[in-house]
Nucleic acid binder design. Structure first.
Lengths: 143, 143
DNA sequence: TCTAAAATATGATTTAAATCATATTTAAGA
DNA sequence: TCTTAAATATGATTTAAATCATATTTTAGA
């Protein structure tokens, strides 16, 4: 339903939201360890996120990754969509191609509503709001 | 969150609920095709389900798999628990070991309630009830 | 303009899940 | 009791996801 890669990407973006800004960029090697993801792996994901404009980066000395203020207005579903694609999270619990509300599989009504709620919730808060929750003690690190 | 194996197992059990009973057992080869799962793969899963007493089977000529009336009182979560284990579906969306309501990760409150609802729903209906829904046209095949 | 430090691009390797193959055991029926 | 048809047990292979490795490009600062 959600890949490991997406989970790692979400962790990395949240980490950047909490610790970075335009003036304070962070290098891959300083991201990997605190979020418990192998460095070479998170590097690849960060590159993908940067290419797809969900995070920002600059090369060279003093370079690194960070979130611009626009980046911080994104939400968690944006990240999942980029890494996993829309199809994966939107698919029926049994991965049936034809299943939908007018042609429901035998467990459609057990699973569908909660998935819709989940997706809605994942769109509800901006990355910035989630980072503020951490700063206000409403939610906790480490990732 | 839910493995392919669990999805296949659920499909097989629902198929048996709809088409089998003590007097009418079904062979692996007659299950695989209608539920769109490779035969050797579903065979292994059915064997596991039988060993764990979620479905019934007899060997030899006229043998096959079927659901006893007790088997039909099981629910979908029972199947997931046997195939994937409890941990997988109960884990935090970010797979954080420490995340829980009193120590919530940054997206805990976005994801937790819908997961609880999903699990509750998957326990709510017996396999028999789900099969009746199909017979009454409330839900549809194929799987 | 040179050097070093960073991301980027690309592809190789590893691992776990999914899939396949087959010898063994059990039970029905001739 | 023999044969055959079924599940069972076991392990091998394949595939996709996860992970690792490295040459290239860009940029800051000397």
């Amino acid at each position: 339903m959600i890949s490991n890669s997406s989970k790692y990407a979400i962790k990395a973006v949240l980490f950047l939201a909490i610790h970075s800004n335009e003036e304070n960029k962070i290098m891959v090697k300083d991201i990997a360890e605190p979020i418990n993801v192998p460095q070479a792996y998170i590097a690849k994901l960060l590159q993908e996120l940067a290419k797809r404009k969900l995070i920002s980066s600059t090369r060279g000395p003093k370079g690194g990754f960070y979130l611009s203020s626009e980046d911080k207005e994104r939400n968690v579903m944006d990240i999942i969509s980029v890494i996993d694609g829309e199809k994966k999270i939107n698919s029926c619990l049994l991965s049936l191609e034809r299943c939908n509300s007018s042609n429901p599989c035998p467990i459609h009504h057990l699973a569908n509503q909660s998935r819709i709620v989940l997706i809605e919730n994942l769109k509800q808060n901006s990355i910035n709001e989630l980072a503020l929750d951490v700063k206000n003690g409403k939610s906790k690190l480490p990732l």
